[in-house]
Nucleic acid binder design. Structure first.
Lengths: 82, 82
DNA sequence: AGCCCATGTCCTAAAATCCCCACATCGCCC
DNA sequence: GGGCGATGTGGGGATTTTAGGACATGGGCT
């Protein structure tokens, strides 16, 4: 009876602004949402989302990624799939 | 021959600015670093790190977490332990 | 070709963030 | 008690980021 749902999709490892953007885009399209729809649902501007998915290289993101790198910590994103 | 290092420390699930801060603090102290040391290594201000670890509730973090929540994606931090 | 729809990109004002100072607190050790 | 190292916290100003509009591009469809 398959204890684990076993959806078997591998997590996204986040180590650059770009990889973060790609992950977001992946999950958004997989959810069948447009940038407009997602932006409205979370109260953001669409152009912001576009830039984020394109891997906008902000200093904020760089800062936290630098911290994680220095500490030897890896960040991953994956489907919560309850 | 122990294929996997099997260090078996459970990952941190990140769902609030606070949980993010706690994770950072955990890994920093585990690495035996002071805020000063870490801040200098990554070229940041110490007070910034302090506030980050205290779970500073920034809009930026909120935005990202809102996106992930809406997409049903979970973010985790764990030791890279190569 | 023409029409949508989704997305990328440029711009500017407005808003949020971060650096950098100062000072307070808390343990711990002498 | 006094000193010291580590951290919390406040404020101000400079820097960075975001919102929001406008416009271009590109694909798919008729």
């Amino acid at each position: 009876m398959h204890t684990s749902g076993h959806s078997s999709e591998q997590p996204f490892r986040i180590y650059t602004p770009s990889s973060f953007g790609q992950a977001i885009r992946h999950y958004r399209t997989q959810a069948g949402l447009t940038q407009d729809e997602l932006a409205e649902r979370v109260g953001l501007d669409r152009t912001y989302l576009s830039r984020l998915e394109s891997g906008a290289d902000t200093q904020q993101l760089r800062r936290i990624l630098a911290i994680l790198r220095e500490l030897g910590v890896k960040a991953t994103l994956e489907r919560a799939d309850w």
